[in-house]
Design a binder for these strands. Sequence first.
RNA 1: GGCAUCGUAGUUCAAUGGAUAGAAUAGGAGUUUCCUAAACUCUAGAUGCAGGUUCGAUUCCUGCCGGAGCCA
Length: 594
Amino acid sequence: MEKKIAQAIQSYFTSHYQITVPEAQLALQETKKEFEGDLTFVLFPFLKATAKKPEDLGNELGNYLVANVPGISSFNIVKGFLNLVLANNYWNELLKDFYTNGIPQPTQGQGKKVMVEYSSPNTNKPLHLGHLRNNFLGYSIAEILKACGYDVVKANLVNDRGIHICKSMIAYQKEGKGETPQSAGLKGDHLVGKYYVLFDAAYRKEIKALMEEGKTEDEAKKKAPIMLAAQDMLLRWETGDPETIKLWKTMNGWVYEGFNETYTTIGVDFDKMYYESDTYLLGKTTVEQGLKAGVFFKKEDGSVWIDLTAEGLDQKLVLRGDGTSVYITQDMGTADLKYDEFKMDRSIYVVGNEQDYHFVVLKHILKKLGRPYADGIYHLSYGMVDLPSGRMKSREGTVVDADDLVHEMITTAEARTRELGKIEDFSSEEANKLYRMLGLGALKYFLLKVDPKKSMLFNPEESVEFQGNTGPFIQYTHARIAAILRKATQLKVLPSAADIPVDYAVHEAERNVLTLLKDFPVKTEEAAETYSPALVANYVYALAKEFNRMYNELPIIGHNTATEQAYRLILCTLTKRTIRQAMLFVGIEVPEKM
RNA sequence: GGCAUCGUAGUUCAAUGGAUAGAAUAGGAGUUUCCUAAACUCUAGAUGCAGGUUCGAUUCCUGCCGGAGCCA
């Protein structure tokens, strides 16, 4: 419809004023609620070229559109805004079409492959709130892209080696006494995290002691015996020392068990796992290629650099003088590895905004190296989750643990549900499933409704809401609709499209819901293009809100005509379906009853 | 110091350069013999400061102030 109108406006300007208006300038917007109409065209930009007053131009154009575009019944002009009113038959045909054929889905991704890399944890400590934002974002964007027709590969690059892992290992060797997750009664990732903390405590104690002996802080940090032991262990790991490798495998095994449990609980998964222990040596041959091609240059000390000053950046190290890798060396290698296997058109890295600079550099390098996939790289850079006191700091014990938080959310959901006492007929299994659904729904919605690019605040003192603009509000609306449809089934009054006459006088509340349903594919497409699940989250909230308004204002079953009843039941079905779909895009399940 | 980023009701979040800046929550007042009150209705409350571009700026540009970040 919007397209038809835009085309009509375009041809009007061409034929009456000999002006060619680019399509981009012909965007119609939805009419604000306080004005009469459905679609609005802004006249201001065209006043100069036509030498008309807004009133006159609006009248001419309005009359032309009413006469030439079927489906527009009338118009009005407020200041420079031309508001178009769509006819009942337009709305009714739309409803019937949606009901028989479904609401269309975007298709821009058909035939294209995209990789979404997300999660990418370190195996030295458990996941925290920031990781949850990452995981939910990655999973959600993958779902949204799938819905647009993309072939999506979800990847996870696990940082399973390096000095941080050795720290946990050293502390375990010193103080572990053969402890296991079973003997300690701890999830594996938490057990390993415990030793990481122990390392840090011992390390700081040693630094303090050395400083009291008169060493500077820098010296003390370098000379602390426990740190030297960790560095030594890293070397032994690299040479493949059997004992070290054995311990490493054991402890990483514990961590993976713990992570998998968390992943299962929060409902995320991966198609392809990468491990840094396999990939950390990659990229060195790329450096050689780059040197030959003149993309990189070598300094006297043998270190290899790229000069990006022409791009407004600076010089960046890509290989150390002793021939060891830096992060970006590995990333170059891994990028090749991924592309060789999947040949994807686009590659999305879900990584925090602290690495913005890193990814700008990586993309520049890959472009200069002439990699065919370089343009398809996109860094989905998201903001940190901050606490009222500022950034989460493990050292200060202010890290919000992912498992703890998820558990707390589920417990809260249970308490709230029991208070309301609406599910007495549920088995305990069904009830537990619902608590998980609601607790995770609240948490995921809380994290995803915010624009990913922005940093956001989490206050541990206040629990995540279950009322208002929240996941459970939307889940509730779904359950409410399900209840209505159950009743309709019982009464055998389920409608068919044939029950709706094309001239049915659409009620305003009905039209508002239908307008939002019509927006679903548009919003999905926009969310995919801007990599923002927040658009879907805010959309589905608006839909639920609008449905509840209608529910409150208009009776659905009974107390109305058969046509009204059929019309509203169809709206119920469509709304329920759309809520479910949209919520799945943000990784949230919805209940039939709550 | 350089680079990039953010600043909107008490608080947490919205707003392709468009109309009277939307929600939620906290505050105040209401709605249940009828489809789920985790809902609905009403009320009060905000664009850091100073310029500029524009018919029109929360949005674009410049400077300042303030917060968190990356690079040395």
